[in-house]
């Protein structure tokens, strides 16, 4: 058995080394959100970027977590580019000297999802804040992402504007997970939730007990911003690639790709709005 073991070890080590990627390329980390990744946007955007860029041997690694976490990752210096949707946190990031070269990239919107019979009468709300007031007073179950994401931040702002302390809600479920998981839980419970439209479209066919109820208020607009991690704070950061990527995504070519990106049902998920 000693010989067999030795052979196995040699084969294993050889296989491992032979299949490692070439070390010549520059790997750049783009911290973004799970909801963005799950729309499949990056599967289209990155190849388009590689096509467009004049930089050689560059690889963009998308690390997708919640917005709060993505910013935290960037603060630790573990990312080079940031693409999130929480203006306040983004501004704080820049103010603290961690980021620079911020650009608006695209927006989608948030929508209120709930059971078709709509006991809270959210469909008839006059605006977003009113919708949330109705949700609170009806005592209906509400599922929150609870993960410091952009969606969660927006949800918290709306509760605040509606004068509601979520502690007082009869049935408020904070699940600490991504949008897809949150939507599934909402579906399972026939409850209400706030979702970004893109993720809702992605999951629409598999959601049996909830539908789109309220949308359209500009307060529900979800603005995405891209920025580079500041090389002054983190000298190792690949600032040149970050600048190049930002030029792509905020420039005519990238914007066109975003605008042309559709989901399986043909919905356009994002509206490009870089200036």
């Amino acid at each position: 058995m000693k010989l067999t073991v030795r052979l196995m070890l040699i084969t294993l080590t050889a296989a491992l080394f032979l299949s490692s990627p070439a070390m010549a390329e520059t790997r750049v980390v783009l911290a973004s959100t799970t909801s963005t990744q799950n729309t499949g946007l990056f599967d289209v955007l990155l190849p388009a970027y590689y096509n467009w860029t004049k930089m050689k041997d560059v690889k963009i690694d998308v690390v997708a977590v919640g917005t709060g976490k993505a910013i935290e990752v960037a603060r630790r210096g573990d990312a080079d580019i940031l693409l999130v949707h929480d203006r306040e946190k983004e501004d704080a990031f820049i103010k603290d000297g961690y980021g620079k070269d911020r650009h608006d990239v695209m927006y989608n919107d948030f929508v209120v999802i709930g059971p078709p019979d709509d006991p809270a009468m959210a469909k008839a709300a006059t605006d977003a804040v009113d919708a949330f007031k109705r949700l609170a007073s009806s005592g209906a179950a509400f599922v929150s992402r609870g993960d410091e994401s952009g969606t969660h931040a927006k949800e918290k702002k709306l509760w605040k504007a509606a004068g509601v302390d979520t502690v007082t809600l009869k049935s408020y479920l904070s699940v600490g997970q991504g949008m897809e998981a949150t939507l599934r839980i909402t579906d399972e419970k026939g409850a209400y939730t706030l979702s970004d439209r893109a993720t809702y479209y992605v999951l629409k066919d598999s959601l049996k007990s909830v539908v789109l109820l309220y949308w359209g208020d500009p307060a529900l607009f979800n603005q995405y911003g891209v920025m580079a991690v500041n090389p002054a704070k983190f000298p190792h950061a690949h600032y040149d690639v970050a600048k190049d990527f930002i030029a792509f995504i905020a420039g005519p070519v990238g914007q066109k790709v975003i605008g042309g990106f559709k989901d399986k049902a043909g919905h356009v998920l994002f509206t490009p709005n870089a200036k």
Binding site: V29, V63, R76, G77, D78, F234, H236
Partner: peptide, 14 residues
């Protein structure tokens, strides 16, 4: 992590 003791090795997310 870059903010950690072995950050200089750039090994995270690999």
């Amino acid at each position: 992590s870059r903010s950690g003791p072995l950050g200089f090795m750039g090994l995270l997310y690999s």
